[in-house]
Design a protein around this nucleic acid. Structure first.
Lengths: 295, 295
DNA sequence: GTCAACCCATACGTCTTCGGTATGCCTATG
DNA sequence: CATAGGCATACCGAAGACGTATGGGTTGAC
């Protein structure tokens, strides 16, 4: 059956007259009459009582009218919903983020998103350095807030900010009494490290920093996340070199100190699949930029 | 928008390929491809990602798919519902009945209807002699169980049975000791009468019966229904001449006796609007005949 | 009682649109 | 580099929809 016919049927049922309905539909009366009869032929039963004063629904017609009206509304709603999703007025965006950024960014980012893209369902997924690439590629997340950026031919990157590396240590450590720690003071001290560069690019930035200053820090432990690193630091296992924003998630007893002669930083970036053309991505990017700019 | 296109869209979305969907729809691939592009033009946004391995819904497409599927199902359901109503497999029938018949007929009629036309909603409305005609004509009820039949050019009648007139009296009445009361014994006794013939045809049957036997019964009271009549009879106001079936609704203390030399009866009939072509009417009629035959 | 008005149904010509066939383009694969 | 698989484009024939003209039946007024 044809939605066109159903629309005509509804119009005639509402107007209780072929002529009136034709007028409302801006068409001639005869073709409308024909369409109604075709619909009746398809159903196999009369849908209207033909009186001398117009048309009146039969019970079969009433049964059809209810559903036809709903079907029309649903179809129209479907088209409109598709347009809304395409325009980014509705939809769903799944946001991946690395846990180090959570405390610094999410509390400001979430309200910003709700204000900027109301009607869009938000999903937040925390990513580890090793899974974030896969989650983007398999569309587990639409965008990812990364530190540092992902490099992959399928993935588009927008750098939205950077974080200075800082030294994290227990507040009882002697170095904690210095305002900014000279790099030389790190020589030979134990390091609580993140996964090796092939699994976490942050590590290679740290390694490059140390290499450039000819510092060797023996690796006391390797952990998966900045938070685990801070736990071990608090336990006295060693020092950690972490982006400044990690401070916001640090447990009591940890202090962060800048490195005096190292301006090294690690990028904060928004990453997404190059072929993902969701109109929500530019909007998300704008929000993220705004929030990160105020860090 | 056209339901045809939505159907094609759903097929392609499910097959995740234009070619496969075309095969399933038993049509060639190119026209299907064209229809999908037309739908996309109508929406104003792509609904599929074209990959080298087939088609994949965009988010806008997913939003449309859900509603399109429901719209299709609703439209199909609407057609089917109209067919079912036309065939009498579903629908609603509003049954009017006169209260005298209620106790005798309804307890058997209702289960019979539920068995015979399951899926049909039943509505029961009690009618008085004066309103039954109007209720049929204004479609307040689809059919009416009447006693006696209605005579009206717009109303079709099927006689399904008859009820002998009987004499109703208090059990303490001297006539109650007789098995069958001779008509002559009614001479001069007070009558509890129903509304006059112009409002209730049953009265004219009673009047005819009395006239034929040259009996005069002064009218003690006029009441609207057989039940009211029985109340007054119990109170000693007089006698009532009622159809046998009224006995089933009689209060304790009322007895019914046949009239020895009068075989007069009053018809039980099913009545409906001549232009009402509900397929449920013949089915209802069959049930009513079956039930009344066993009275 | 007849005539006009109203409303739906039918007939026919025109035009839109749909579906089929043939073919091209792109990409992945061996 | 050649082949295969998949979607897009071009063109043609056929079906269906719309418009105009007209018929038939009923209501209501003069």
């Amino acid at each position: 059956m044809d939605l066109h016919r159903l629309r005509y049927f509804v119009a005639v049922a509402e107007a209780r007259s072929v002529g009136k309905a034709a007028e409302r539909l801006r068409m001639a009366q005869p073709p409308l009459s024909v369409q109604i009869r075709k619909l009746e032929a398809e159903v196999g039963a009369p849908l209207f009582h033909r009186g001398t004063r117009g048309m009146d629904l039969t019970e079969a017609g009433q049964a059809l009218l209810v559903r036809a009206g709903e079907a029309l509304a649903l179809a129209a709603d479907g088209i409109e919903a598709a347009r809304a999703v395409a325009a980014g007025r509705r939809g769903r965006i799944s946001v991946g983020y690395m846990f180090v950024l959570a405390n610094a960014v999410l509390p400001r980012l979430i309200p910003e998103l709700r204000r900027s893209i109301p009607g869009v369902d938000l999903d937040f997924v925390d990513l580890s350095a090793s899974t974030r690439e896969a989650r983007l590629l398999d569309r587990g997340v639409t965008v990812a807030l990364c530190m540092p950026a992902i490099h992959h031919p399928e993935i588009q990157v927008a750098r939205i900010g950077a974080q200075r590396f800082m030294l994290a240590m227990p507040n009882r450590s002697p170095l904690a009494r210095i305002g900014a720690v000279p790099m030389a003071r790190l020589q030979g001290r134990p390091l609580v490290a993140l996964p090796p560069p092939e699994r976490d690019p942050a590590s290679s930035a740290v390694a490059a920093l140390l290499r450039r200053h000819q510092i060797v820090m023996p690796i006391a432990s390797r952990v998966e996340t900045a938070h685990s690193a801070m736990s071990l630091v608090l336990a006295g296992e060693g020092f950690a070199i972490l982006p400044a924003c990690a401070k916001l998630g640090a447990p009591r007893g940890i202090v962060f100190r800048p490195l005096r002669d190292a301006a090294d930083s690690i990028d904060i970036a928004v990453c997404w699949r190059r072929d993902s053309q969701s109109p929500l991505i530019p909007k998300f990017l704008k929000c993220a930029e705004k929030v990160v700019a105020r860090l």
